[in-house]
Nucleic acid binder design. Sequence first.
DNA 1: TATGCGATATTCT
DNA 2: GAATATCGCATAG
Length: 196
Amino acid sequence: MKRLKRADLPVDTATLAYFLIGKSLVRDAAEGRTSGRIIETEAYVPGDASGHAYGGETDRNRSLFLRRGHAYVYLIYGMHFCVNVSSERPGIGAGVLLRALEPIDGVAIMQARSRVHRAADLARGPGRLTQAMAIDRRLDGIDLCSRSSLWLASAARPPGRVATSVRIGISKERCRLLRFYEAGNPHLSGPSALRK
DNA sequence: TATGCGATATTCT
DNA sequence: GAATATCGCATAG
Protein backbone atom coordinates (compact mmCIF):
# COMPACT_ATOMS: atom_id res chain seq x y z
CA MET A 1 0.00 0.00 0.00
CA LYS A 2 1.72 3.14 -1.24
CA ARG A 3 1.05 6.68 -0.13
CA LEU A 4 -0.59 8.77 -2.87
CA LYS A 5 1.36 11.85 -3.93
CA ARG A 6 -0.41 15.08 -4.69
CA ALA A 7 0.75 14.81 -8.29
CA ASP A 8 -1.24 11.57 -8.53
CA LEU A 9 -4.50 13.40 -7.78
CA PRO A 10 -6.47 14.82 -10.73
CA VAL A 11 -7.03 18.58 -10.43
CA ASP A 12 -10.72 18.46 -11.36
CA THR A 13 -13.27 17.70 -8.61
CA ALA A 14 -15.50 15.20 -10.44
CA THR A 15 -12.45 13.48 -11.91
CA LEU A 16 -10.94 13.17 -8.44
CA ALA A 17 -14.19 11.72 -7.07
CA TYR A 18 -14.04 9.03 -9.75
CA PHE A 19 -10.30 8.51 -9.25
CA LEU A 20 -10.66 7.88 -5.51
CA ILE A 21 -12.93 4.86 -5.97
CA GLY A 22 -10.85 1.80 -5.09
CA LYS A 23 -8.08 3.82 -3.39
CA SER A 24 -7.38 3.44 0.33
CA LEU A 25 -7.95 5.73 3.30
CA VAL A 26 -5.62 5.03 6.23
CA ARG A 27 -5.88 6.25 9.82
CA ASP A 28 -3.05 5.84 12.32
CA ALA A 29 -4.29 6.35 15.87
CA ALA A 30 -3.23 5.34 19.38
CA GLU A 31 -5.31 2.15 19.16
CA GLY A 32 -3.57 1.15 15.94
CA ARG A 33 -4.08 1.37 12.21
CA THR A 34 -7.47 1.24 10.50
CA SER A 35 -7.91 1.42 6.76
CA GLY A 36 -10.52 0.89 4.12
CA ARG A 37 -11.14 0.83 0.41
CA ILE A 38 -13.01 3.94 -0.77
CA ILE A 39 -16.09 2.67 -2.60
CA GLU A 40 -18.43 5.69 -2.64
CA THR A 41 -17.77 9.42 -3.13
CA GLU A 42 -19.65 12.58 -4.04
CA ALA A 43 -18.23 15.59 -5.90
CA TYR A 44 -19.11 19.11 -4.70
CA VAL A 45 -17.81 21.10 -7.64
CA PRO A 46 -16.96 24.82 -7.88
CA GLY A 47 -20.09 26.99 -8.02
CA ASP A 48 -22.31 24.14 -6.80
CA ALA A 49 -25.19 25.59 -4.72
CA SER A 50 -25.25 22.43 -2.60
CA GLY A 51 -21.56 22.71 -1.71
CA HIS A 52 -20.34 24.18 1.54
CA ALA A 53 -17.94 26.45 -0.33
CA TYR A 54 -20.82 28.13 -2.14
CA GLY A 55 -20.99 31.69 -0.83
CA GLY A 56 -17.30 32.01 -0.11
CA GLU A 57 -14.63 31.16 2.39
CA THR A 58 -15.43 31.16 6.12
CA ASP A 59 -13.74 29.82 9.26
CA ARG A 60 -15.75 26.64 8.92
CA ASN A 61 -15.12 25.76 5.27
CA ARG A 62 -11.58 27.14 4.92
CA SER A 63 -10.11 23.68 4.24
CA LEU A 64 -12.13 23.32 1.03
CA PHE A 65 -10.07 26.20 -0.38
CA LEU A 66 -6.71 24.51 0.28
CA ARG A 67 -4.68 22.87 -2.44
CA ARG A 68 -6.14 19.51 -3.45
CA GLY A 69 -5.55 16.61 -1.08
CA HIS A 70 -6.40 18.26 2.25
CA ALA A 71 -9.10 17.10 4.68
CA TYR A 72 -12.25 19.14 5.32
CA VAL A 73 -14.06 17.79 8.39
CA TYR A 74 -17.35 19.22 9.65
CA LEU A 75 -20.15 18.39 12.06
CA ILE A 76 -23.52 17.63 10.53
CA TYR A 77 -26.92 17.39 12.26
CA GLY A 78 -25.22 18.19 15.55
CA MET A 79 -23.86 14.70 16.02
CA HIS A 80 -22.00 13.22 13.04
CA PHE A 81 -18.81 14.19 11.27
CA CYS A 82 -18.23 14.05 7.52
CA VAL A 83 -14.88 14.15 5.73
CA ASN A 84 -14.04 15.63 2.31
CA VAL A 85 -10.89 15.76 0.20
CA SER A 86 -10.21 19.25 -1.12
CA SER A 87 -10.08 19.02 -4.87
CA GLU A 88 -9.10 22.15 -6.78
CA ARG A 89 -6.37 24.78 -7.03
CA PRO A 90 -5.64 26.89 -3.94
CA GLY A 91 -8.37 29.49 -3.40
CA ILE A 92 -11.07 27.55 -5.23
CA GLY A 93 -13.56 25.94 -2.85
CA ALA A 94 -14.58 22.39 -3.74
CA GLY A 95 -14.30 18.91 -2.34
CA VAL A 96 -15.06 15.22 -2.56
CA LEU A 97 -17.18 13.72 0.21
CA LEU A 98 -16.11 10.21 1.28
CA ARG A 99 -19.34 8.29 1.84
CA ALA A 100 -18.39 4.65 2.39
CA LEU A 101 -15.42 2.33 2.90
CA GLU A 102 -14.93 -1.38 2.60
CA PRO A 103 -12.92 -2.04 5.79
CA ILE A 104 -9.46 -3.59 5.31
CA ASP A 105 -7.20 -3.18 8.37
CA GLY A 106 -8.21 -2.85 12.01
CA VAL A 107 -11.77 -4.14 11.76
CA ALA A 108 -11.77 -4.98 15.49
CA ILE A 109 -10.72 -1.38 16.29
CA MET A 110 -13.52 -0.02 14.11
CA GLN A 111 -16.03 -2.24 15.85
CA ALA A 112 -14.87 -1.02 19.25
CA ARG A 113 -15.45 2.59 18.13
CA SER A 114 -18.87 1.89 16.68
CA ARG A 115 -22.23 0.71 17.95
CA VAL A 116 -23.21 -0.84 14.65
CA HIS A 117 -24.17 -4.52 14.73
CA ARG A 118 -23.40 -5.78 11.23
CA ALA A 119 -19.80 -5.74 10.00
CA ALA A 120 -20.95 -4.56 6.56
CA ASP A 121 -22.36 -1.38 8.15
CA LEU A 122 -19.13 -0.30 9.88
CA ALA A 123 -18.13 2.42 7.41
CA ARG A 124 -21.30 2.54 5.37
CA GLY A 125 -22.41 6.18 5.18
CA PRO A 126 -20.38 9.34 5.81
CA GLY A 127 -21.18 9.53 9.53
CA ARG A 128 -20.34 5.90 10.23
CA LEU A 129 -17.16 6.19 8.18
CA THR A 130 -15.79 8.97 10.39
CA GLN A 131 -16.91 7.13 13.53
CA ALA A 132 -15.11 3.93 12.50
CA MET A 133 -11.97 5.86 11.52
CA ALA A 134 -12.00 8.23 14.56
CA ILE A 135 -12.14 11.34 12.37
CA ASP A 136 -13.27 14.62 13.95
CA ARG A 137 -12.66 18.37 13.68
CA ARG A 138 -9.12 17.95 15.04
CA LEU A 139 -8.19 16.47 11.65
CA ASP A 140 -9.71 19.37 9.70
CA GLY A 141 -7.16 20.94 7.37
CA ILE A 142 -4.54 18.20 7.50
CA ASP A 143 -2.68 17.20 4.37
CA LEU A 144 -3.75 13.73 3.24
CA CYS A 145 -0.65 13.51 1.04
CA SER A 146 1.84 14.03 3.88
CA ARG A 147 3.08 11.87 6.76
CA SER A 148 0.07 12.50 8.95
CA SER A 149 -2.33 10.33 10.95
CA LEU A 150 -4.87 10.31 8.10
CA TRP A 151 -3.70 9.70 4.55
CA LEU A 152 -4.56 8.39 1.11
CA ALA A 153 -2.97 5.26 -0.35
CA SER A 154 -2.99 3.27 -3.56
CA ALA A 155 -5.66 0.69 -4.30
CA ALA A 156 -5.44 -2.60 -2.42
CA ARG A 157 -7.54 -4.05 -5.22
CA PRO A 158 -8.63 -2.30 -8.43
CA PRO A 159 -12.27 -1.23 -8.55
CA GLY A 160 -14.92 -3.08 -10.52
CA ARG A 161 -17.49 -1.17 -12.53
CA VAL A 162 -17.80 2.42 -11.31
CA ALA A 163 -21.32 3.84 -11.61
CA THR A 164 -22.74 7.34 -11.10
CA SER A 165 -25.98 8.56 -9.54
CA VAL A 166 -27.58 11.60 -8.01
CA ARG A 167 -26.17 12.69 -4.65
CA ILE A 168 -27.76 11.70 -1.37
CA GLY A 169 -29.33 13.95 1.25
CA ILE A 170 -29.22 17.30 -0.55
CA SER A 171 -32.05 19.60 -1.58
CA LYS A 172 -30.31 21.83 -4.14
CA GLU A 173 -28.79 20.74 -7.45
CA ARG A 174 -30.40 17.35 -7.03
CA CYS A 175 -30.26 16.25 -10.67
CA ARG A 176 -26.51 16.27 -11.15
CA LEU A 177 -24.85 12.85 -11.43
CA LEU A 178 -21.95 13.51 -9.09
CA ARG A 179 -22.04 10.43 -6.85
CA PHE A 180 -19.54 7.73 -7.80
CA TYR A 181 -19.50 4.17 -6.46
CA GLU A 182 -18.29 0.65 -7.10
CA ALA A 183 -21.41 -1.06 -8.40
CA GLY A 184 -22.79 -3.86 -6.26
CA ASN A 185 -20.35 -3.53 -3.37
CA PRO A 186 -22.12 -4.71 -0.18
CA HIS A 187 -20.68 -1.84 1.89
CA LEU A 188 -22.43 0.94 -0.09
CA SER A 189 -24.78 3.42 1.56
CA GLY A 190 -28.04 4.75 0.20
CA PRO A 191 -31.21 3.02 -1.02
CA SER A 192 -30.79 -0.25 -2.90
CA ALA A 193 -31.74 1.41 -6.20
CA LEU A 194 -28.59 3.54 -5.89
CA ARG A 195 -26.19 0.62 -5.35
CA LYS A 196 -26.44 -1.04 -8.75
C1' DT B 1 -38.01 -3.26 2.42
C1' DA B 2 -39.83 1.24 3.04
C1' DT B 3 -41.10 5.26 5.42
C1' DG B 4 -41.17 8.36 9.51
C1' DC B 5 -39.29 10.66 13.34
C1' DG B 6 -36.33 12.40 17.16
C1' DA B 7 -31.73 13.62 18.63
C1' DT B 8 -28.50 17.32 18.70
C1' DA B 9 -24.94 21.63 17.47
C1' DT B 10 -23.51 24.84 14.34
C1' DT B 11 -24.45 27.98 10.70
C1' DC B 12 -27.31 30.84 8.13
C1' DT B 13 -31.54 33.96 7.40
C1' DG C 1 -36.12 30.55 13.96
C1' DA C 2 -34.95 27.28 10.18
C1' DA C 3 -31.99 24.31 7.79
C1' DT C 4 -28.67 20.76 7.69
C1' DA C 5 -23.78 16.46 2.41
C1' DT C 6 -27.04 11.65 9.07
C1' DC C 7 -28.20 7.73 11.90
C1' DG C 8 -30.79 4.35 14.61
C1' DC C 9 -35.01 2.91 16.18
C1' DA C 10 -39.95 2.35 15.52
C1' DT C 11 -43.81 0.91 12.92
C1' DA C 12 -46.31 -0.80 8.89
C1' DG C 13 -46.75 -3.60 4.86
